[in-house]
Write a protein that binds this DNA or RNA. Sequence first.
DNA 1: GGCTAAATGCAACACTATTGCAATTAGCTA
DNA 2: TAGCTAATTGCAATAGTGTTGCATTTAGCC
Lengths: 143, 143
Amino acid sequence: MVRDSIRILQAQGHKATRPRKLVLEVLEETEKPLSPYDIQGILRARGKYLNHVTIYRILDLLCSLNLAHKVLSSGGFVKCSLDDIEGCHRFMVCQHCGAIQEFADKGLCQEENEFARNLGFHTEYHLSEFSGLCSRCYRKWLH
Amino acid sequence: MVRDSIRILQAQGHKATRPRKLVLEVLEETEKPLSPYDIQGILRARGKYLNHVTIYRILDLLCSLNLAHKVLSSGGFVKCSLDDIEGCHRFMVCQHCGAIQEFADKGLCQEENEFARNLGFHTEYHLSEFSGLCSRCYRKWLH
DNA sequence: GGCTAAATGCAACACTATTGCAATTAGCTA
DNA sequence: TAGCTAATTGCAATAGTGTTGCATTTAGCC
Ligand SMILES: [Mn+2]
Ligand SMILES: [Mn+2]
Ligand SMILES: [Zn+2]
Ligand SMILES: [Zn+2]
């Protein structure tokens, strides 16, 4: 919720500005990754102009506070929708409709850590992005 | 090995050109992800000029044949060092020295598929990149 | 309402990636 | 081995993405 994010921003000493509210609103209402220019376009279509530099800076800030994430497979940004798991970043992306779902699982992290340790690697951070079909698209696809 | 990659290229009807050999040599001899411009710079330092467009096209080709991979967390490219696992792309990246190691594990894929299925998601492709410390750097770090 | 640090907008720039086309070349054939 | 031709490369132009410094504006505080 936008209001929650604003509260977190302010709790960390950041201002609740018009541009920040607008970006948060856009992220809040879409379930697909959006580039900075996507966000600018959506807002422009509503008659709300933001400079792209401002959008970059806002997205940086939101990511630094874990209020948004950059999805690496597409380069777009999504709102954070989980109480964040330290050192873990996981998404499922539907390759048909583009919908994205954040998830987390301690068990998966442990399996991965152990697997890596067996190869002599000490894991600090897990990135994992699955692509496939969301339940809605999978159902459609079946008949 | 560069020679193997060249053979695969030719088997698919692609020519074994000087630029392709040069890019393959560079990828072969480094264990870190390299951007197209990194590759151009390395070659230029050896007195071998390639246009950046050519490098982009070669990397596209190599990726399409699974002879190289794009590492999403850094945007760089590495040679493929595994018999490729269908629909699975995994790397461990050392955050100290930048070394990268490709890996794969059927068990991990199955765990992930199952986890996703429980959330109604049908997984087609797994991307996972761990960052942490390679065994060498981890040892150094300890004392 | 005024003050001030923080945030935004702007302009310029740097870097990354793509396109169309002319020139070159690898691999085939004679 | 020389010539042929499709594939590949280089080049120029352009588009897209991301960054910086600085003047202006604004949120939050008194
Ligand atoms: Mn999150
Ligand atoms: Mn591979
Ligand atoms: Zn879908
Ligand atoms: Zn290392």
